[in-house]
């Protein structure tokens, strides 16, 4: 009974063909859609494109690295100049301080000598 029902089902459900008119329309439609689509690039061109992409990426990375190094060197140079300037300022202050000391002692010596002369 079950096998009989199953064989009847298989017989009744055999695939049917669509109309020839529909088949023609379908083939034309699919062909037209493929024609209107941009064609796939050939393999060689795809490889060239990939190489170009990697070259661009490598160039961009090199430029970024060069800019970074340049920035680092510039910072280092400014720091060295800053230290030199600081040292010079300290040296100038030290010299000025010495001069002031000398001047103060000279004034003080003159002041003590003047007092003695006037009998104070």
């Amino acid at each position: 009974m079950n096998n009989d029902l199953e064989s009847k089902l298989k017989h009744a459900l055999r695939p049917v063909a669509p109309s020839d008119a529909f088949t023609q329309r379908l083939l034309a439609r699919v062909a037209a859609s493929r024609d209107s689509r941009p064609q796939a690039r050939p393999t060689a061109s795809r490889i060239t494109r990939r190489a170009a992409w990697w070259t661009s990426a490598a160039l961009a990375a090199s430029v970024l690295a060069a800019v970074g190094i340049q920035h680092q060197l510039q910072t280092e140079r400014e720091r060295t100049l800053g230290l030199q300037a600081r040292r010079q300022v300290i040296e100038a202050l030290r010299v000025t301080s010495q001069k002031l000391d000398l001047a103060y002692q000279a004034v003080r010596t003159q002041s003590v000598g003047g007092d003695r002369d006037s009998g104070v």
């Binding site: 459900l13 695939p15 049917v16 063909a17 669509p18 529909f22 088949t23 379908l26 083939l27 699919v30 062909a31 493929r34 064609q39 796939a40």
Partner: peptide, 23 residues
């Protein structure tokens, strides 16, 4: 991308697809 080959595939399989869709 050969159109004739795509057409051949459609012809080979359209009965199955159409019958499934219809039923």
């Amino acid at each position: 991308g050969q159109p004739a080959a795509i057409g051949a595939l459609i012809l080979a399989h359209q009965r199955s697809v159409y019958s499934l869709a219809l039923r």
